[in-house]
Simulated assay, not measured.
Amino acid sequence: MISVAVVDAKTPGNVGTIARAMKNFGLTDLYLVDPPDLDPDGEAYGFAGQAREDVLPNAREVSFDYLVEHFHTVGCTAVTNEDARHHVRYPFRTPRNLADSLAGVDADTCVVFGRERVGLTNEELERLDEVCSIPASAEYPVLNLGQAATVVLYELRTLTVEETQLPTDIDRAPESDVEALHEQFASLVDRALVEEKRPKTLRLWRRLLGRAHPTTREVSTLHGVFRRAESLMGDRE
């Protein structure tokens, strides 16, 4: 199970944004360390969307010690060290790497986000089990707290969102329909291009359509376009 914690947030709106992202990606348990005032008529609830109904009102205020003692913890930071001589912020995972790693972990995990301006301190990160950082431009790597949480939770969706909510299969047209489209395109090419250009054009078309995995509707639409094109060419001959 994956939970989220926000440490010492200063802006209620960021807490609401994180709660909304949690709702988007199937998480429910929010922990707050030294939170700002979360007025039900204020900014946090205004930014939370439907998370104002369950995630935000059920958020628990806890200590940092509680997170360390009860969870496998992942600290999120924008500032990292790039070599093994510095252990506080190295090694670190990207959000996508983190999702792959946690897929095999049978432990309650809490993803911990820090303050808007300075994030988590070195002293806090030293007490956490893993470090996660979002790859961003070296010129401006620091994301808004709510944005950072949304990116990380999006990558974790494969662990938190029911598979039935995720499209997994491509509705590709039957192979016989695709081959019929190839034949119709070949007929069109025979009428439109000189002979020496036809083989290359047909190969390009086959590779293009092979990568596209067209649906039944798309194949049917292209059939109609090609028929119309051939009809117009016949009228002009």
Rank of each mutant, 00 (worst) to 15 (best):
L181Q: 09
H86C: 04
T168G: 13
V88N: 06
E53P: 04
D100V: 09
D171K: 12
K197H: 15
L156D: 02
G224L: 09
H182R: 14
E163G: 11
V225F: 14
T160R: 02
L67Q: 00
A99W: 00
Y140Q: 09
L143P: 03
I134D: 02
Y31Q: 00
Y31G: 00
V6E: 01
A192P: 07
R60E: 15
V131R: 03
V105P: 03
R236D: 07
P95A: 02
T201Y: 09
V33A: 01
E183K: 12
L27V: 10
D83N: 12
L67P: 01
N81E: 14
L209T: 11
E179R: 15
R228Y: 11
D190Q: 15
P167L: 07
H70S: 02
L166D: 01
G146Q: 08
V142T: 11
L188M: 08
G42M: 02
E230M: 10
G13D: 06
P35R: 08
R172G: 06
L98G: 10
N24V: 08
T109A: 02
G42Q: 04
A19H: 12
Y154T: 02
V118F: 14
A99N: 02
V68Y: 05
A138M: 10
V15C: 06
S220H: 14
I18T: 03
D106E: 11
P12L: 07
P12Q: 12
R203E: 15
V4I: 11
P174E: 01
Q50C: 04
E69Y: 08
L159D: 00
P141F: 07
E162R: 12
G75V: 00
A186Q: 12
R203L: 10
T164C: 08
Y66K: 01
L202A: 00
I170N: 14
R60A: 13
P40Q: 06
G13C: 05
H87V: 07
F25S: 02
E53R: 15
D41N: 13
P57R: 01
A229Y: 13
A192Q: 13
G234D: 12
V105I: 03
T168P: 07
I170D: 14
A138Q: 13
R52F: 03
V68S: 09
C110H: 08
E130Q: 13
E130K: 07
E175K: 13
R203Q: 15
M1Y: 05
T109G: 00
Q165L: 15
T121A: 03
V151L: 10
V225S: 05
D106K: 03
G119E: 05
H86N: 11
G42F: 00
L98W: 05
L128Y: 04
E139C: 06
V68F: 08
G26S: 05
E43C: 08
K23N: 14
R211I: 04
T28W: 12
D65R: 12
R127T: 03
A192L: 15
M233S: 12
T80V: 15
Y90N: 07
A192Y: 13
V142G: 06
L188P: 07
G49C: 06
G13N: 05
V62W: 08
T94L: 09
L202V: 05
S3V: 01
D83G: 08
I170V: 15
R85L: 11
P91R: 03
R52Q: 07
H72P: 05
P167M: 09
A21H: 04
L27F: 06
D39L: 11
D171N: 14
T73E: 01
V62Q: 02
Y66T: 00
D100K: 11
T215W: 00
P36K: 06
V178T: 12
M233E: 04
H182V: 12
